[in-house]
Write a protein that binds this DNA or RNA. Structure first.
Length: 111
DNA sequence: CGTCTGACGCACG
DNA sequence: GCGTGCGCCAGAC
């Protein structure tokens, strides 16, 4: 059977997919929600593989703890990630999310 | 099995 | 406040 939650990556994908529109979260928060608070790097790494994952994973809603679009270059462009965020009502400026803590979505709370 | 890498996070200077 | 270095876990070679 498909033990979806068996893989570390899959856990990350599931959490990211559950991020509500107009909300964002951090790599560390996701790492904690999956049981590895120190595996923040793994989260970002999983995102790198997200382009091979289906359905689409809203990786643009995932930023670092500073609210900065650290992985925007991985979207195939420098403005793709920001464009997506702004398209959802998220204000972004200078590659940084405005009101970050206000739109921050905690996976441990809603999950 | 050993080594390097990775879209981070934190400590230190 | 900013730059640099180390550590964390997991996977690829």
């Amino acid at each position: 059977m498909m033990k979806t939650d068996e893989n570390f990556f899959n856990k990350v994908y599931e959490v990211v997919r559950q991020i509500p529109k107009g909300r964002v979260t951090t790599y560390g928060a996701i790492a904690k929600s999956i049981g590895s608070p120190q595996a923040s790097r793994m989260v970002g790494w999983a995102m790198n593989n997200s382009h091979s994952v289906k359905p689409w994973v809203p990786a643009h809603r995932v930023v670092n703890r500073n609210g900065i679009l650290t992985g925007k270059h991985h979207f195939g462009g420098s403005t793709i990630m920001q464009n997506l965020l702004e398209s959802e009502g998220i204000k972004v400026e200078n590659d940084k999310i405005l009101d970050f803590k206000e739109i921050f979505w905690n996976p441990k709370v809603d999950l």
